[in-house]
Design a binder for these strands. Sequence first.
RNA 1: GGCCCCGUGGUCAAGUGGUUAAGACACCGCCCUUUCACGGCGGUAUCAUGGGUUCGAGUCCCGUCGGGGUCACCA
Length: 543
Amino acid sequence: MDYQKLADLLFPDNKYTVEEIEKKYPKRQLEKGAYVTRFAPSPTGFMHLGGFFSALIDFNIAKRSGGVFYLRIEDTDQKREISGASAVIMNILTGYGLTPDEYELKGGVTVGDYGPYYQTERKEIYKAYAKKLVSEGKAFPCFCKKTEGLNDVKKKREKKFSVGINEDKDPCRNLTLEQIEKNLKEKKKFAIRLRSNGDGVSKVKLYDTAKGEIEMTANCIDAILLKNDLMPTYHFAHAIDDTLMGTTVVVRGEEWLPSLPLHYEIFNALGFSQPKYIHTPLIYKFNEKGNKIKLSKRKHPEADMRFYEKEGYDKQAVMEYLINLINSNFENWRRANPTAELSEFPFNGFKITANTPIFDIVKLNDISKDVISRYSAEKCYEELLAWARENSAENVDYLVKDREYVTKVLNIDREKPKPRKDIYKWSMFFDLFDYMFGKPHNFEIEENKKSDFEDALREYKKYLNLSSKDAWFENVKKMANALGYATDNKDYKQNPEKYKGNVATVCEYIRVAITGRKNSPDLFEIMTLLGEKEVLERISEFA
RNA sequence: GGCCCCGUGGUCAAGUGGUUAAGACACCGCCCUUUCACGGCGGUAUCAUGGGUUCGAGUCCCGUCGGGGUCACCA
């Protein structure tokens, strides 16, 4: 077979040769030890938590080594393309401070010399390499009918098929030049497949920086390199782009691990050497049956980065949670350095756990509470406002108009060595403090306590004193005493039957009347902010 | 089913041949606060399993079991 002739037949009008292309992509001039990483999502208008997770690792590896972090859009599957998706990706990345050094905005600027950064714009590059492989006999055209996508595959999987030796070699690999010419004359579309040398038995030693050496069965599949629209598959584009663009470390989800032998064979065929790989653990949740399942876009809102945006999770907290998932030394560091910037943490992207973590929103909440408790009231206000502008438009006017008051509310129990921690996302603010912005409607009081409750409130009108915290509390005690509630706690504990309750009980009644609930920050501060008139009105509701 | 990854408490995890097997979340108890919290102290609870190797194994090797991933002209 005259492979060169075949290559010319298949690709008569390629714009570039491989040599021409490689001239345009010189080796990057970087300090020794500097890593080049990339985030390479497909533009579906959705960013998965797991994708963000690898971007976080990418960013840290590049930035901490003085290297480059770039964004490449893998838009070769036109069916899935959503317009404006790349802007969404850039927004999230920059919002979290993971701004790429090189990127391209569709219809806008391109930053960086190793572009284009959209794969569809690199079509001629892939074609050049495909032609080269064909001319060397390492790839061949395939005229078969396409598989019908995911459904076909699923059916095949249900049969629990096993892949035997050489069974995956594609029949088209044996087509004669004449047959190919005939097909071409009939304008038949073709894909380009790798002519695999693998037997499906021999082993290859591969390496993952996080997992160590992995021995895998060599690839034996004549994998598609170029689809019949001549766009590359992930595998082919990965080899070419990451080589040309100088990627030294590829961080990607663990679902890619099984295709490592394929990538190994493609890199070899192309004469490229492989980058380092870090396959990150996938993030799971438990389903109803208690089985682990992948955090998925369809089933789990938390899989979508927009969820955290909408809910108003603190960005620092989301990142701290993720780092904590792969390395809990982080928590020790955080405790020792409670006010340090996240960027000061000696994050080692190469040393990540291989375990498969289960997403735990309770833990995220806790981290978020901690992060937010360290903020000043002013910072909280800014964050709250920023969140509201995007996600709660109806509250923006109010926040802007009553900035001072809102800041004071945010400041309750905050300016102290151990600040209160009850806010973990901004969307909860208005519910949590609803009583600061209007009279409560529901009151957490048991039916059998109602008469005591009302008696206490009636009496409290006489005792209300907001002149100082001490005076306020002194009066609460006086009233408690007058109504037969214990003011000596020890005595109360020993002889509870002697009393209707203790000061805590009285406080509970007042708290419920003012806030509607049994839990709230410091009562005196709340009453002071509300003002005497409002406080009396609320008490008078019951007395 | 083939191939591969993973297996320390309910969850996340430190641990790289000798530890009383850290820490955090959650849960429970006590203390502090004569309010709600914050906080402090303590508790329950873990090396999947069976064999090796070794004076010694959570750590190394093999098997088993369990969980997960993958097997598309999707990434």
